[in-house]
Design a protein around this nucleic acid. Structure first.
Lengths: 127, 127
DNA sequence: CAGTATCCCCCCGGATACTG
DNA sequence: CAGTATCCGGGGGGATACTG
């Protein structure tokens, strides 16, 4: 996240510094487990609210809506309301959302690849 | 994070389910902004506590120590104490840590690539 | 300088109830 | 079913003081 112009501090870098603080903000939004788990759960498909609720294990109603709104706000997913009764709402990743998902996949892959190493490290740590 | 055997539920899958819950745990540990920012700050180098403190902007003393312990516990970084006075402690990513860092890099890259899209999405969202 | 310990406030986030 | 609103308890996390 550290970029060159952070070190410069020239007046004309004002817009660049703005971009940086924006990047920080986005990073903080996105780098939390619920957001990432939702993105992972969405995958290539489109999911309903209730589907996500049960697929993202352990997430509460409130956390799900909050994070969905946040992801929508940042343009990572699209929310389409079907005017039926009972109502039906679909969530789908946008292109940027799908792009981010590949990195989430990478983290998941990393996790499983290093399970052993981590488990051993924990035993060593606990003594 | 969803794997096949989660759906099966056969008795002999006990160890696999254990692995899954472990994976979930690790994911929860790692998927938070401070942990990821620390990993990013460490990079290929070795850093002192105070260096990290100032490089990871906005992190508090407490959060830094907590996350460093957590990352050490999971074997993502190595902590070496130099018995000098004043004391000096170096933190370095292990191989798994460096592997994870590449994915953090990917997220950072993603963030900057999609700044425009996100900014526009936000304006649209706010109406 | 690096780290632990303590205090304490705020707010995250769960539970619940209610609308369209 | 999807979503908002409200309440409220527990703990995340900051500030501070203290040790080696």
């Amino acid at each position: 996240m550290v970029t060159k112009h952070q070190l410069a501090g020239l007046p004309e870098d004002a817009d660049l510094r703005r971009a940086d603080s924006l990047a920080r903000e986005i990073f903080s939004d996105v780098a939390n487990k619920w957001a990432l788990l939702i993105i992972e759960a969405l995958g290539e498909d489109t999911r309903r609210f209730s589907e996500l609720r049960s697929e993202v294990e352990g997430i509460s109603h409130k956390m799900l809506t909050q994070n969905l709104r946040m992801l929508e706000r940042n343009g990572l997913l699209e929310r389409t309301v079907h005017p039926t009764v009972p109502p039906r709402v679909d969530y789908t990743l946008t292109e940027p959302g799908r792009a981010l998902r590949t990195t989430v996949d990478a983290i998941c892959g990393w996790t499983h690849e290093h399970l052993d190493h981590i488990e051993k490290a924990r035993h060593r740590f606990t003594g």
